[in-house]
Simulated scan of single mutants.
Amino acid sequence: MPAYPTNPADELGGRLSAIPANTPAGAVASQLLAYFTSGDLAPGTRLPPERQLAQMLGTGRSAVREALAALEILGVVHIRPGSGTYLRASASELLPQTLSWGLMLGEQKVEDLVQIRAALEVLAAETAAHRAGPDNLIALQEHLTQMREHQNDYAAFVEADMLFHQEMATASGNHTLSGVLQSVRALLRIWVDRSISEEAEARDAIAEHEQVLQALTAHDPAAARSAMTSHMHTANKRLLDKDEPSVAADNHIHIPDLSAKDD
């Protein structure tokens, strides 16, 4: 992979503007993102160290560190301990707009993303009911078992929940759908991580996932769509209830019909 120049300031001079030292990490990430998606850097490029980026931006290293960590979660960069930070080799054409939502998740973009995720999850479930193979069903059962075993360990529970949905998207056989869903889930991760905080909520979520898995196992697209629609309505309510009152005010999220009518 191409290494960054010895003096990155020569390469980025005039392209990264100094910002106030107390600028939030989101603003730092926004400026870095604008440059990373400009096309001037080759995929796989090793970026300057945090210290040099902080000097170039005129801000603190902690803000740069948090910004890079956020961009890694969103799939823009890859941080290799002991090696450096690299620009990822591929990105969706939707990346700039999708990531701009992610950098503004404190606003009502959260509700927009929740609605998008719900529609895509329903589509993934319906498609997976057609295409899920034995290996997919075994993996889904394993993730559901992990959810049952970690009802009191909410971090582990949420992780198993996320893996269940990822496997379901993989089972759909639609790689684009799976990739977009993964990006949307990453943007919502901070909210999803706190959406389960009581054992009763965990039990409800498990029951909802059981219904989805039963439909997938039966290869029943209509049942899978119905089960995932029901799960998304209750999951969204749990998620938005943990958010700001302005976003949580309307807990009913309309799920657009994205199914293929001619299947």
Rank of each mutant, 00 (worst) to 15 (best):
A118F: 03
L120V: 07
L120K: 13
L120F: 14
L120Q: 11
L120R: 13
L120A: 09
L120P: 11
E121Y: 02
E121C: 10
V122G: 05
L123C: 08
A124G: 02
T127R: 14
A132N: 00
A132T: 03
P134S: 15
N136T: 10
N136L: 00
N136F: 08
L137H: 04
I138Y: 01
A139Q: 07
A139K: 04
A139G: 01
Q141A: 15
E142K: 12
H143N: 15
L144S: 05
M147A: 02
M147Y: 00
R148F: 04
E149I: 01
E149F: 09
H150Q: 14
H150G: 10
Q151A: 11
A156P: 03
A156M: 08
A156Q: 13
V158L: 13
V158F: 05
M162W: 06
L163E: 15
F164D: 05
H165A: 07
H165Y: 04
E167G: 07
G173Q: 06
N174K: 03
H175C: 14
H175I: 15
L177Y: 04
S178W: 08
S178K: 15
L187Q: 09
L188H: 06
L188I: 04
W191R: 13
W191Q: 09
V192F: 03
V192N: 06
R194P: 07
S195K: 13
S195F: 08
S195A: 15
I196S: 10
I196G: 07
S197E: 14
E199S: 12
E199Q: 09
A202D: 04
D204R: 13
A205M: 08
A205Q: 08
A205V: 02
I206H: 05
I206C: 09
